[in-house]
Design a protein around this nucleic acid. Structure first.
Length: 647
RNA sequence: GCCUUUGUAGCUCAGAGGUAGAGCACUUCCUUGGUAAGGAAGAGGUCCCGGGUUCAAUUCCCGGCAAAGGCUCCA
């Protein structure tokens, strides 16, 4: 008997019954076999050395596959547990999964407290174990035997996990002296793990339940090459240097005040200028795309949110309503702009000819976040969205989606994001009861989103069951300069609010119809977006956005007057500059300007003063030579054009 | 919200049961210097806030508040 294995490229190969993924890899090439960590068989990730179940599709997973990485990290967690058990006999183990960057294991060390000082010993033990090329072995165990094993080991956490499993579906994995309850899969042996580092230690409740015992969570990561670990550590350090909270302080962009309140950012002049520039950029782009600006108040009657349904769903987790002293009316700080915009739509009869109606507002909204969740600008309690709501006919959804995608791409390009993809969130395939809106509209909208994403040629992943209850959505995921993933802009279709607000338009058939609403925010929140661009650029903002494009550096204060005149001249040419009028040497002024990441330094001394020129130095680049103010302005304009894609 | 850690000059941080220090920044003076730190002097503190213990608390204890790292949540 032979089995047919279909590979990702569509080719079909024939193997003996009982062949493993590893056998397939070896038949292709030895080199490939050396790199195979696990395999995806009929869509399920399995051990590479487990016999294939019969005819199947097979994808061999290596370090280059997300699932391959996850397999290795999960196996690494087992090895770390073995090392911990060897060093701390009696330690009990919770769960140890792979995560986006590495893995963790939750461990109960009993009365001992384990901290950073203990990392070195664990790392040494880990390396000792991994270097032995220990094989991972899978075994199926009966529930009774599994319970027996962990009862003897006195590990109540594993016992609790076993309780939730069905007899006949329980597997153990063993490597060396360590056996763990585990679904798998695992890498063939430990020789794939060449570098290991414990990154962090933190407390974590057993099963995420604050009423239960707090375990010690060890975060760690492994790599198949030492060099990759070194690079990762450099990247982490770089990320720390780029932390927007640190850079924001260094560049005087924003601050927080205890008196004002946690999670309420205060924008300093330079940061406010940055915000303003982003807003203007977006406004201009939106005007060209047919949006209409509106403005609505920061509060709205509680009734508004009862109508929208937000009161019922989020009311108790919101800032509580404020009341008027005489009449006892209740108002909420607005947590979103859409209910206000719905009322603008409803303010007069609408014809199908008016659609799509695109209402935009840089609306500041307030949402209660738990105090422990606040994080710099990335997670705040008051923030401004570049919000807009598109009211359209069902047949216009796709076209509007395409236009919004164009807008988002314009933004991403202007900010030097080169790596991005779209995530489309659709309904759960099985359970459709939790969604509102007609089947017909959902099908239409879901198809429209898929088509739109495909038409603009973006890399797209589709997630089922991730749609909001009121409609499908598309999120943009970007990778920043350090390879970290962020979710930025979002586009959501909404059938719910038009229903709740009873929005209508008159169609060509002279009948009333319900419009479809699209929520979209390319930046998402300005605060969060600025946090991302700070970390993406490390504070070296694109020239068009930088509050300070150039700084004039007089060689001595004899040339201060000349510099002030040049500043005016450059300002007339739309170049934003300041003058470093401190009593310091040029070397010092250059150093400080470099440190504050100003794109251009303009040195003015005797020669330049006489000729009316500038000696131009670029941040991080060095001397560019002497230019006239006009030539410099032209250079800056040219750079900006290229960045904004308007060249 | 919960757990752990932290809170000292504008910033980064040291410090001890007896009223506080460094570097950078700031002010003044000297210096007028050509592509990554010129020199000198000076000013600057409710040691997060409120209680308690003590002859004496910024230091020890308790309670708040804020921040960091987690856990849970996110229209």
């Amino acid at each position: 008997m032979k089995i047919n294995v279909t590979l990702p490229d569509g080719s079909v190969r024939s193997y003996d019954q009982g062949a493993t993924a590893m056998d397939v890899a070896k038949s292709i090439s030895e080199g490939l076999a050396r790199n195979v960590l696990s395999a995806k068989v009929n869509g399920e990730v399995r051990d590479a050395n487990r016999p294939l179940p019969g005819d199947c599709t097979l994808a061999l997973l290596t370090w280059n596959d997300t699932d391959g990485k996850a397999t290795m990290w999960h196996s690494s967690a087992h090895v770390m547990a073995e090392a911990v058990e060897a060093l701390y006999p009696g330690a009990k183990f919770g769960i140890g999964p792979a995560i986006e960057n590495g893995f963790y294991y939750d461990i109960d060390f009993g009365d001992r407290s384990v901290g950073e000082g203990d990392f070195a010993a664990i790392e040494a033990k880990f390396k000792e174990i991994a270097s032995k090329k220990v094989v991972f072995t899978r075994s199926e165990v009966s529930k009774a035997d599994a319970v027996k094993y962990f009862t003897e080991k006195d590990d109540e956490y594993k016992l609790e996990l076993i309780e939730g499993l069905k007899d006949g579906e329980i597997t153990f994995y063993n490597q060396g002296n360590f056996t763990d309850l585990c679904r798998g899969p695992h890498i063939p042996d430990t020789s794939f793990i060449k570098a290991f580092k414990i990154l962090n230690v933190a407390g974590a409740y057993w099963r995420g339940d604050e009423k239960r015992k707090q375990l010690t969570r060890l975060y760690a990561i492994t790599f198949p090459k030492q060099k990759e670990l070194d690079e990762y550590l450099v990247m982490l350090e770089e990320a720390k240097k780029r932390d927007h909270r640190k850079v924001g302080k260094e560049l005087d962009l924003f601050t927080f005040s205890e008196k004002v309140g946690a999670g309420l950012p205060l924008w300093l002049p330079k940061g406010a200028a940055l915000r303003e520039r982003l807003i203007n950029f977006m406004k201009t782009a939106q005007e060209k795309a047919g949006y209409l600006q509106v403005a609505t108040p920061h509060i709205g009657s509680k009734q508004l949110y009862i109508t929208s349904g937000h009161w019922e769903k989020y009311g108790k987790d919101s800032f509580q309503p404020i009341s008027t002293p005489q009449e006892g009316e209740q108002f909420m700080l607005k947590p979103m702009n859409c209910p206000h915009h719905c009322e603008i739509f409803a303010s007069r009869p609408r014809s199908y000819k008016d659609l799509p109606l695109r209402l935009a507002e840089f609306g500041t909204v307030y949402r209660y976040e738990q105090s422990g969740e606040l994080h710099g600008l990335a997670r705040v309690r008051g923030f401004t969205q570049d919000d807009a709501h598109l009211f359209c006919r069902p047949d216009q959804v796709k076209e509007e989606f395409l236009k919004v995608i164009d807008l988002v791409l314009l933004v991403l390009r202007a900010l030097n994001f080169e790596n991005f993809e779209a995530q489309v969130s659709l309904r759960d395939k099985e359970d459709r009861s939790k969604y509102i809106g007609s089947e017909e509209n959902w099908v239409k909208a879901e198809q429209a989103i898929i088509d739109a994403a495909a038409e603009c040629g973006m890399k797209t992943t589709v997630e089922y069951g991730e749609a909001a209850f009121y409609g499908p959505k598309l999120d943009f995921m970007v990778k920043d300069a350090l390879g970290r993933r962020w979710q930025l802009g979002t586009i959501q279709v909404d059938y719910n609010l038009p229903e709740r607000f009873e929005l209508e338009y008159v169609g060509s058939d002279n009948q009333k119809h319900r419009p479809v609403m699209i929520h979209r925010a390319p930046f998402g929140s300005l605060e969060r977006f600025i946090a991302v661009i700070i970390e993406h650029t490390g504070g070296r903002f694109p020239l068009w956005l930088n509050p300070e494009q150039a700084i004039l550096l007089p060689v001595s204060d004899k040339y201060l007057d000349v510099c002030q005149k040049l500043q005016q001249q450059l300002s007339d040419l739309d170049i934003r500059t300041t003058v470093d009028d401190r009593n310091e040497k040029v070397g010092r002024k250059i150093r400080d300007a470099e440190l504050t990441k100003i794109p251009f330094m303009l040195v003015v001394g005797e020669k330049e003063a006489a000729d009316g020129t500038l000696s131009v130095r670029e941040h991080g680049q060095g001397d560019l030579g002497v230019l006239t103010p006009e030539a410099f302005a032209a250079l800056v304009r040219e750079r900006i054009k290229v960045q904004l894609g308007t060249a």
